[in-house]
């Protein structure tokens, strides 16, 4: 955790008359949620470390509209989408990376029909690509030999069939990757999606995040790895529910990479 972060905005690049290679779409959670900000910084450290020319939109970024769309508010969704598309097309954006599977899904699948056509990758895909290209060298650091299980985010996994990138990145850390019975296409939701993050759950016998955390904890992992800021919140709460927060950490794949390699 060394030097200060270098995070230019698209406006900065425009002022210099340059264009970055990639736009880092931070997302609301990554911008405002205290826990998720740490993930955002981990992603930035990786980007800074490999020296990619990237930029954020900063104050020009707005909610993609994902929670509005899932909750049925198509008006609000399209207002948000058009606002973001107008900004991004204005900057002639071609490629985007994001740390949030919900932003990823929305921009990838729902913006094109409204005029926003970009190549977008999830940060685990970018990290995998950087490792494969030899631009990012990683070792396991303090995670070497530890048992890690990966919780598939619904909007990365089932929704977009990205199952391998996060796993391949985790395995580069010389760890024991333990799979939950419900993983990949059969992965169980953390309970946040579909705008559930923003409301109390309906009457039932159990909270979904506790059901999922229980399954993850049954493997006795050292770390529950996630790839979504909302899953992170839900799994962290679930681990606390079972009083296991001292033994089991909930970390984003980007944080694993950044921490293991002192980025």
């Amino acid at each position: 955790m060394s030097e200060a972060l270098n995070v230019p905005t698209m406006a900065d690049y425009l002022a210099k008359g340059e264009t970055p290679e990639i736009l880092f779409w931070v997302g609301c959670s990554g911008s405002f949620d205290d826990r998720a900000k740490k993930i955002t910084k981990a992603i930035v450290r990786i980007l800074n470390h490999v020296g990619i020319k990237f930029a954020i939109l900063g104050m020009e970024e707005s909610c993609t509209g994902d929670p509005a769309k899932r909750a049925g508010n198509e008006f609000l969704f399209q207002m948000q989408a058009m606002q973001n598309i107008t900004v991004m097309n204005g900057y002639n954006i071609k490629k985007i990376v994001t740390g949030c599977p919900h932003c990823f899904n929305t921009i990838k699948n729902e913006y094109p029909e409204l005029g926003g056509k970009y190549e977008i990758v999830h940060h685990t895909q970018l990290v995998q690509e950087l490792i494969d290209q030899g631009k990012l060298k990683v070792n396991g650091g303090t995670f070497k030999g530890k048992k890690i299980t990966f919780h598939d985010p619904c909007y990365l996994g089932r929704a977009n069939e990205v199952y391998e990138a996060p796993r391949e990145v985790i395995q580069k850390l010389d760890v024991e990757l333990a799979e939950m019975k419900r993983s990949r296409a059969k992965g169980l939701c953390c309970g946040a999606g579909g705008a559930q993050m923003f409301k109390e759950s309906e009457k039932g016998s159990k909270e979904v995040n506790n059901e999922r955390a229980e399954e993850a904890l049954s493997l006795n992992p050292d770390v529950i790895a996630v790839g979504c800021p909302f899953c992170n919140t839900m799994m962290t709460d679930g681990v606390k529910h079972f009083n296991k927060e001292d033994k089991v950490k909930v970390l984003d794949v980007a944080e694993l990479i950044a921490q293991a390699n002192d980025l």
Binding site: C154, R158, A185, C189, G191, G193, G194, Q196, E202, V208
Partner: peptide, 11 residues
């Protein structure tokens, strides 16, 4: 309102 839109049912 309970739905997570997780797509498990569709899968």
């Amino acid at each position: 309102w309970a739905c997570n839109t997780c797509n498990a049912c569709v899968q």
